[in-house]
Nucleic acid binder design. Structure first.
Length: 287
DNA sequence: AAGAGGCCCTGATAGC
DNA sequence: TGCTATCAGGGCCTCT
């Protein structure tokens, strides 16, 4: 589900709601996420204050006391819900709370901050929670991650040199988190459309100009998506259970057989599976 | 050793 | 209120 913009939306609301709060209780209903949640997980987090909430590519990082951290990844279908418990919506026979847009199934993790409760829901369980006990362990966890699109090191030199002699197509590079981190399947199609580059173009054949465009439009699309609250295709919801709005502005994603949105182009949007991921592009103006 | 493909999992939808 | 097949915002692991 969530690419950089969606994860950033979640981070922003966590930052407003749980910063400086103390974890008072943790309930794990299903430990079998992508990585199994260890039996010590609860003990490590309990009574710790959240000092800061940051994001690195598609990962959320909770900064805890004593140089401890908790990494959260939402996988394909993970959502985080913040619900307020009060007299009217508390049900004593379950831990769930009515009057919220909370799914009924797959609420795997609950972190309680007094009456405010953070609930992790994930039908497909590709996401995870991971406790990190030191700064070293934190940096080693991310050691293979490429620069974020917004970072200074995602520049023309880096991209152009990285692509030299690479036979892989550009679509796959945008999805490759070791090259650039945070872009996923939706935004890679959108970025390449704006760059007028066809997704199957070999990276080594991209000019310096095209590399510049890739950098520019990566930032452009992701920034715009963040401003619109992210994209909702099926699962993504913000912490209040509301959908994003950027899907209304897709130029190619899920627009198969529609006309190209460029006024001067008479192309048609095509869908093609590239290494098993659906990819959308204009058959005329992307070259 | 770069690059392609399978796989983890559940649910929604389309087609029969 | 049937099946069954296909596909979905990710990323790790294995094979060549």
């Amino acid at each position: 589900m969530p690419e950089l913009p969606e994860v950033e939306i979640v981070r922003q609301s966590l930052n407003k709601k749980i910063k400086y709060k103390k974890i008072q209780k943790i309930i794990i209903r299903n430990r079998n996420l992508r990585f199994k949640i260890s039996p010590e997980f609860e003990k490590s987090l309990i009574n710790k204050e959240i000092k800061k909430i940051s994001r690195l590519s598609k990962y959320i990082i909770l900064y805890l006391e004593d140089n401890n951290y908790c990494i959260i990844h939402l996988g394909m279908s993970g959502t985080i819900h913040l619900v307020e418990r009060n007299k009217n919506n508390f049900k004593t026979n379950t831990s769930f709370y009515s009057s919220q847009k909370l799914p009924k199934k797959h609420n795997h993790v609950e972190i309680h901050f007094g009456n405010l409760i953070m609930i992790y829901n994930d039908p497909r369980r590709f996401g995870f929670f991971k406790f990190i006990k030191s700064q070293n362990e934190l940096s080693s966890f991310f050691k293979n991650l490429g620069p974020e699109p917004f970072s200074k090191s995602f520049n023309c030199n880096y991209v152009f040199n990285y692509f030299k002699n690479k036979n892989k197509n550009i679509k796959n590079f945008l999805l490759d988190q070791n090259f650039v981190s945070g872009i996923g399947n939706i935004y890679s199609s959108e970025i390449l459309y704006l760059c007028k580059i066809k997704p199957l173009k070999k990276a080594k054949n991209l000019s310096l100009q095209k590399c510049k465009k890739i950098i520019y439009f990566s930032k452009y699309v992701l920034n715009k998506a963040i401003k619109k609250g992210g994209s909702t295709i099926r699962d993504f919801k913000n912490t209040l259970g509301n959908e994003g709005k950027f899907q209304d502005e897709f130029r190619v994603y899920q627009r198969e057989n529609s006309n190209c949105r460029r006024k001067t182009c008479n192309g048609i949007i095509k869908k093609k599976f590239i290494t098993n991921r659906s990819t959308y592009f204009c058959n005329v103006c992307q070259k």
